[in-house]
C-alpha cells in the first residue's frame, strides 16, 4: 500500500510538471490554433535564465519568480512578434513548422550559452524532507503541485472573469467574429504567447528544482503531449488535470510493469485517446475528420 501511495504521490509531482507545460500548449492552441512545438524549449530557456538570475543575485524562491516571470513573458512576446506574427494568414501547417524550427533554434542556442553539463538548481527552496502522513516530500515537489493548483485557479479565473480572458475565449470560438466585435486578435495572440511563456517558466524552474537543470529539459515538452491530448488540446484546465493523470499512469506503469514502459506509456495513452476520443476528456468536439 505504501508503495502504491509513493508511486501515486511521485506521479502527481511529475504529473504537475506535465500539467503546467500542457497548460502552456493549450493556451496557445486555444487562442491561435497552433500547436507550439517550441513549448519545451521555452521551458528550458526560461529555466536556464532563471538559473543565471538565481546564481547571480541569490534570490529566494518568490522574488526569483517575480523576476523570472516578467522576463519570460517578454521572451514569449518577442518570439511571437519575430517568428509567429509574420506568418499570420499562412496555413496552420506552415506556422506549426515554424515552431518546430524555432524549437531547434532555441535548443541549440540554450545549449551553446549554458553548455551541455547539468546544473544543480534549488531555486531557493530548502531540501529538507517534509512528511505528509507517511509519505516523504521535498519542498520543491510540494511547490510544484501547489504551482499547478495556483496556475489552474488563476487560469480559470482569467478565462472566466477578466476582459482579456473572455476576449481570448471569443477568439478561440470564432476568430472572424471576434475581430468583428472589436477584439484585437493579434493582441490576443501575443498575450497567449506571453502567458504561455510565463507558465513555462514556472514549470521550468520547479522542474529543474525537482530534478536537474540539464539540456534535455526540452524533452519534457514532448513528454507533455500526452497530457495535452488527453485533456483536449483547447482545454487549459483539462490539460492541467490530464497532466496529473499522465504522471500517475507513468509511475504505475513503471512500478508494476517495467522500467522501459514509463517512457512510452504516455505515448500509448496518446494513441488510445486519439483513436477513441480525439477531442480529449475536456476538449470541444469540433475536430475535423472524414
Amino acid at each position: 500500500m505504501d508503495f502504491l501511495l509513493l508511486l501515486i504521490s511521485t506521479g502527481l509531482v511529475s504529473g504537475a510538471a506535465y500539467g503546467l507545460i500542457a497548460m502552456g500548449f493549450a493556451l496557445i492552441f486555444k487562442s491561435t490554433g497552433v500547436v507550439n512545438f517550441a513549448q519545451g524549449e521555452l521551458v528550458m530557456l526560461t529555466a536556464y535564465i532563471s538559473f543565471t538570475i538565481y546564481s547571480t543575485f541569490e534570490l529566494s524562491f518568490f522574488p526569483l519568480m517575480l523576476v523570472t516571470i516578467p522576463i519570460s513573458m517578454l521572451i514569449g512576446l518577442v518570439l511571437e512578434r519575430v517568428f509567429i506574427r509574420p506568418m499570420l494568414g499562412e496555413p496552420v501547417f506552415a506556422i506549426v513548422m515554424v515552431t518546430v524550427g524555432l524549437a531547434v533554434i532555441l535548443r541549440g542556442i540554450t545549449i551553446m550559452i549554458w553548455g551541455p553539463d547539468p546544473f544543480n538548481f534549488t531555486a531557493g527552496l530548502s531540501t529538507n524532507v517534509v512528511y505528509l502522513g507517511s509519505i516523504p516530500f521535498y519542498p520543491a515537489q510540494l511547490y510544484l503541485i501547489a504551482a499547478l493548483g495556483v496556475m489552474t485557479l488563476l487560469g480559470w479565473a482569467f478565462l472566466r472573469f477578466t476582459r482579456m480572458g473572455i476576449a481570448m475565449r471569443a477568439v478561440a470560438a470564432n476568430e472572424t467574429a471576434a475581430l468583428l466585435v472589436g477584439i484585437s486578435v493579434s493582441r490576443i495572440h501575443a498575450v497567449a504567447w506571453m502567458l504561455s511563456a510565463a507558465i513555462a517558466s514556472v514549470a521550468g524552474v520547479l522542474f529543474a528544482a525537482n530534478y536537474k537543470l540539464a539540456p534535455d529539459l526540452w524533452f519534457q515538452g514532448l513528454k507533455s503531449f500526452p497530457a495535452v491530448i488527453l485533456g483536449g488540446m483547447d482545454s487549459v484546465i483539462g490539460s492541467a488535470m490530464a497532466g496529473l493523470i499522465i504522471g500517475v499512469i507513468e509511475n504505475l506503469f513503471q512500478g508494476y510493469i517495467g522500467q522501459g514502459l514509463r517512457e512510452i506509456s504516455g505515448f500509448i495513452v496518446i494513441i488510445i485517446v486519439l483513436m477513441v476520443r480525439p477531442y480529449g476528456l475536456f476538449g470541444s468536439k469540433d475536430i475535423e475528420r472524414v
Binding site: 506549426v96 512510452i264 505515448f267 500509448i268 494513441i271 486519439l274 480525439p278 475535423e288 472524414v290
Partner: peptide, 28 residues
C-alpha cells in the same frame, strides 16, 4: 490506422508518438 481518423496536427503527434514507441521497443 489511427491516421484514418486524424488529420494535420493530430496525425503529426501520433506519428511522433509512434517514433518514440518504436525507439523504446528497440531499446528494450
Amino acid at each position: 490506422v489511427p491516421s484514418l481518423r486524424l488529420k494535420g496536427l493530430y496525425l503529426a503527434i501520433t506519428t511522433l508518438a509512434f517514433a518514440f514507441i518504436i525507439n523504446h521497443i528497440i531499446l528494450y
